[in-house]
Design a protein around this nucleic acid. Structure first.
Lengths: 132, 132
DNA sequence: TAGTATGGGACCAATTTAGTCCCATACATT
DNA sequence: AATGTATGGGACTAAATTGGTCCCATACTA
């Protein structure tokens, strides 16, 4: 499956943080609203932080907020933060993994589809999704 | 990953059977030529048979051959035979699996990407790939 | 300084993917 | 008809990935 549940959770989480301007929400709040297991969400949030998608405020009344404008966050950014390079297929990401390497007639197709999907995911930004 | 190794093997296998007109090849031959574990390939071939993509000849000098013209076999056919409906995401295949169901802003995007990929895979037929 | 929040690694369970093994069945050749 | 070689197909196992929990350290603020 190209999109794992973890990525799905990450998208929903970002979407929640975007639904109100400058919102700061803690793990409990997001987990409840978006129906995501709390501790799992905490881990997801840390990955989003490392990629500069969300920021955190520690201590009492702390929480998480978007680190960038919704228009500057794409589905591809989120997928990359959670799953790494979004592959259609192992060999489309790293051709070393394919034992037939260059002699494989299908390889170019996988690579091409991957590119198409990626460019589509890059166009789908959070602000577009929010305003539905 | 959208395309599993098993599907990859299946594609290579069909491609092998298509490289020469009316070729009949046994498991050992295909496995060796395409570097696929023999017993694993045998199982894959059986699935391809049930979907009417390849046919078999039993007994001595038996083997497998294409059951349809290369132009009538698409990558989507092969994927569907091995993996079932090709999902980008569980919720794009069966919306019941998504707890947020209709309230999910991203859902339409997954469904749409899935459709794009499927139509692309349908266009890529074996005869096109063979003639590279 | 007490309390509430994130930071982050270790750990575990479930599912999927990948692959093997064994035996039944079919059939062409001799 | 016997025999050897091939597919048919289910049971089983191993490895990898996914999904998730737990625990404790650290940070910050009221």
């Amino acid at each position: 499956m190209l999109v794992t549940r973890e990525t799905d959770y990450a998208v929903r989480c970002v979407l929640y943080l975007a639904h109100e301007k400058d919102l700061v929400a803690n793990v409990t709040e997001i987990a409840h609203a978006m129906r995501i297991p709390k501790t799992f969400l905490a881990k997801i949030l840390q990955r989003l932080i490392r990629k500069g998608i969300v920021g955190s405020l520690r201590g009492m009344n702390g929480g998480f907020r978007l680190a960038r404008k919704p228009a500057d966050i794409s589905l591809l950014d989120i997928m990359a933060a959670i799953q790494g390079p979004a592959g259609i297929n192992a060999c489309a990401v790293d051709s070393k993994k394919c034992p037939m390497s260059s002699s494989c007639a299908v390889h170019p197709v996988w690579v091409d589809i991957r590119r198409e999907v990626e460019s589509r995911l890059k166009k789908e930004t959070i602000d577009k999704l929010r305003g539905r």
